[in-house]
């Protein structure tokens, strides 16, 4: 029986968290939800504890990179076979965890990315992205392909599965800023095999996205800068 950790980085997610954990625990797999409370000011840690999840409470806000890395360190220390990152805002549909696990089984990849943009049947996807965000993601995707030779469409997807090898790599090296796209550079450096599979995603259940307006463009420019820097470091 494979040990599977579900790492849920959270910042002020007291409203969406209970239903998300309930959904995870109802799945027919033996899954261990690990909530990483990234210095929330609300009752995130308390509600997570009530649901029976393992709670790692960071005393200060480290950002999503620091939170996910904490979960990975925990998963690695407790000898989990797989770690699956699921956002605490409810965007990632827990029923798609099975899709990621099956994709890993078939591809034997070290990292499986749940992609919003690979799905042929768009009607099943309730997640809607803005034009500027899509443009930004496409540009990052092009740069990753150009610099690292990796063909990944959903470069900012946080819905991903990591095996032991990937966990060990990321427990040691995990980017602080813009972790999702930058992890591809680290994965490439450590020769991790990446596979992208289609998943359906939902609109966030509560709260609003922090990347709105012109922010996707700013995000894109900074991510591309980081990717170029990482490429230089690799050489």
């Amino acid at each position: 029986m494979k040990k599977i950790a579900i790492i849920i980085p959270c910042f002020n997610e007291e409203k969406s968290l209970p239903s998300l954990i309930r959904e995870i625990l109802q799945l027919p797999r033996d899954l261990t939800p690990i909530v990483v409370d990234d210095g929330s000011q609300d009752q995130t840690a308390f509600v997570a504890q009530k649901t029976g999840a393992i709670v790692l409470k960071l005393p200060a806000n480290l950002g999503i990179g620091g939170a996910v890395q904490t979960g990975l360190i925990f998963a690695q220390r407790h000898h989990f076979d797989f770690a699956i990152q699921v956002d605490g805002d409810g965007q990632h549909d827990p029923s798609e965890i099975e899709t990621l696990l099956k994709a890993q089984e078939n591809s034997q990849a070290d990292i499986v990315i749940g992609s919003r943009y690979l799905r042929s049947d768009e009607s099943q996807n309730t997640f809607k992205s803005t034009i500027s965000r899509r443009m930004g993601i496409s540009a990052i995707s092009m740069v990753i392909r150009w610099l690292y030779g990796l063909k990944i469409l959903d470069t900012t997807s946080g819905f991903r599965l990591m095996n032991k090898k990937a966990m060990a790599t990321f427990a040691e090296h995990y980017p602080v800023d813009f972790p999702e796209p930058i992890t591809f550079a680290i994965a490439h450096e450590h020769q991790l095999k990446i596979f992208e599979c289609p998943v359906k995603m939902r609109e966030r259940q509560h709260g609003t996205s922090s990347i709105t307006g012109l922010k996707p463009m700013k995000y894109m420019i900074r991510v591309i800068g980081y990717l170029i820097l990482y490429q230089g470091r690799r050489k």
């Binding site: 709670v55 790692l56 409470k57 960071l58 005393p59 200060a60 480290l62 620091g66 360190i73 925990f74």
Partner: peptide, 14 residues
């Protein structure tokens, strides 16, 4: 260092 210490604190607390 602060990041590493913060992570260690959370893991130890658990």
């Amino acid at each position: 260092k602060v990041r590493q210490l913060t992570q260690k604190m959370a893991l130890l607390e658990e």
